[in-house]
Each structure stands twice: as C-alpha cells, then as structure tokens.
Design a protein around this nucleic acid. Sequence first.
DNA 1: ATTTGTGAACAGTTTCACAGCG
DNA 2: CGCTGTGAAACTGTTCACAAAT
Lengths: 201, 201
Amino acid sequence: MATSVVIPEATRKRMLLLLHLLETWPESKITSLQISGQTGWKDSLIRHDLWLLGYNKGVSNGYQTVDLRTAINQALGLEAQTKNCCIVGLGRLGAALLDEKLTEDTPFVIKAGFDSNVNRVEILRSNFPLYPAHDMNWVIKQEKISLAVLTVADKDAQVMAERLIAAGIKGIVNMTRCVLKVPPEIKVENLSVINALKLVN
Amino acid sequence: MATSVVIPEATRKRMLLLLHLLETWPESKITSLQISGQTGWKDSLIRHDLWLLGYNKGVSNGYQTVDLRTAINQALGLEAQTKNCCIVGLGRLGAALLDEKLTEDTPFVIKAGFDSNVNRVEILRSNFPLYPAHDMNWVIKQEKISLAVLTVADKDAQVMAERLIAAGIKGIVNMTRCVLKVPPEIKVENLSVINALKLVN
DNA sequence: ATTTGTGAACAGTTTCACAGCG
DNA sequence: CGCTGTGAAACTGTTCACAAAT
C-alpha cells in the first residue's frame, strides 16, 4: 500500500469519473487496460491511482467492478450519509439546478434555494423551499447545509461566498467567472461555462 | 522571457480568472502582491505565470491593468474574432444556457441548440435557432461552429461527442458526469456539478 | 523601499520497468 | 502469459531567493 494517506487532487478527479464509468460497465470484471481504452488514461496511471487508494484486490486478475466501486467510494469518503446542499442565485442557471433528477442516485440533497430578489423567490416554482438571501444564515444552520452551488451575478460572488462561509458552509461549487478568496479550509471548485469555453477554444 | 512558448494548463486557468479580476479592478495599476491579496495565489506564482506568457512591462512598478489584459488575451489566443458555439441537449440545464446574457461581453456566440427530442425543439422558446439532433452535422458545418457545450443525458454523452467531432467541433465543455474518449487534438473541459460537489465535500 | 524578472530548488504528477501473482 | 503492485525515473508545476530596476 502507498505510505501516504493523502489522495492527490488529480487522482480524486479521475476516480470520480471512473466511478461513473464503473456504474455503466456491462461486465462484472474490468482491467486497467480496459479502463484505459474507455478513458484514454495510461493503464499504469490507473494502477498507480488504485495503489494510492490502498486498493490491492486485483492481483493479476483485473478488478471486480462492484468491489472497486465501494473501495473508491470509501477511499474518497463518499460512502457516508447524504450531504445537504443549496443553490445560491436563482437566475436561469441556478433555477435549472433546482431539479430532483440532478441529485438522483447521488449522496446530495438540495435543501434550499436562495436569491436576493424576493420577487423571484416568490414567483419561481420549485420542489425545494426557496428563501430570500437574507435568510441564508439561519436556514443553512437549521438545515445543516454544508455545500453550496454559487450561481449569482459575478459582482455578488465574493460577498455571497463570504456570507455562506460565515453561515458554516464547507465547500462551494463556483459557477461564476470570479476567483473566490476563501480561507484554506474551505474547498472551491470553479465551474464557469465561459471560462471553460475559453480553455477549449 | 520564458524559453518555451507552450503555456501550461494551470497557468491558463489562472490567467482566465485574473482576466476577469482585471476587468473590475478599480485602479489603473495592479501589483503581484495585490493580485495575491485578491486571489490567495502566491505573488511569486503570478510573476512566474506572467513571465511564462513573455510579459515584462511591469518592471518594479506593478502592471498597467489595460496593458496586462491585452497581453493575456493575446498570449492565450483570445483576442481573435468571435467563436461560434452550440448547446447540445436542451434539458433544464441546456435550456438555461440559451441565454444572451451568458455570452454578453465574451468572444462567444451561440449559433444553435440541439436536442434529439423533436418535440422539445419545437416547444422551447429561444432567441437562438433550435434543431433536432439529426441536423447537427450540416448546421455545425454551415454555421462554422467550433465549440460545443454538452448537456445531454449521461448515456448519450459519448455518442453525441463523437457526432460533434465528426461534424468538425474542436472543443467540448462536458457538463455530464462521463469521461469522454476523444482524439488528442480535441479539447475537453469537464464541468459536472455532481462531480464538483463530490470534490468539495 | 518596493516590486518585478529569473532561474534554481522543491513539490506534485505521470510514466516506465519489471518482479510476482494467478 | 497476461495483469497487477510497486518504486524509481521523468516530467510538470510551484515556491524560493535574490539581482536589477525605479
């Protein structure tokens, strides 16, 4: 097994994609070469990743998909109970995320949507409770929400992030184009569509 | 100047965020330490990034924001004429991206939306022309579309990606949870909200 | 005094090579 | 004999240290 227990960021990202691939893999067994064929990643990299996770049940035989899935989930701390999250900013993009299907078969539960426009909160139809932004603090605490998806206007991104953190949020999926300045213990993933288009262009 | 002309991926990502920061920076000058204060990145990293870009107009005085912006745009090849893109898969998420405001002040123009459900294509209201998925090939060629945002159901992701590539697409923003297997010359950015939630959890 | 430009040192990530298991 | 497990080697990206510029 690998000496360290810290799983590198790059490996975590691949493992999430692999997890999804395993869910739809038709056979009960899979080899590092087959994974390589499906993903384009080097087979040695996949074996190395699994080695980092401390997984070694595949010796010379390939991996049992079911077993591998639970191992990855466990290693990444995803097998735990559900996590509560919220959507902050209910413009077109934010409102589109208020969809039960999105979190179906995932460990995430959307507990609330927030928008600073009280009017929008009242008009929008949703299966989730919506609140004006000034209720963020108590709702996040009461509903034990630990994750947020930030879909506000760019100019409000930093202020809203700070209010989320003050309310006790631990991770933010940032869909704005802004860099969020946050304390080191808060995790942020940047998911701006425009920035992504610039990267693939 | 840096010897190499290849700008690393990590630097490109930071530069896109920096670009957006510069757009809203109130003063005409900015120093690497000020950028560090806004982003949390080490000041030396910022200077190193700019060195990689071949930028050296800041000597001991900080950078002129306007000048720096054009330099970054140039180095990343973003100052060119507009790029045409399309949205593939018009579920809640895809439909939400059919928004003029999204590409406002960006070099991107949405030229088409596609969905394999003909019914949905006819019913959806949009400022952009919508087509059934089987028209993808000719529309992409006729409209000279080079980039696609993929928001289809996971099970259709790989097939649709292949059809896009066959039609001549060069870059894909992949909002599904799947790994896309594509030829090395095609650029892909993965932007799955669920995978991002798993990363920040 | 402050701030950049630069390369060397350091840290993180991927690939290689191959021993050992089934 | 094909396939994994493992550490070393190669590579990429980040931080440090300091000379040079204003």
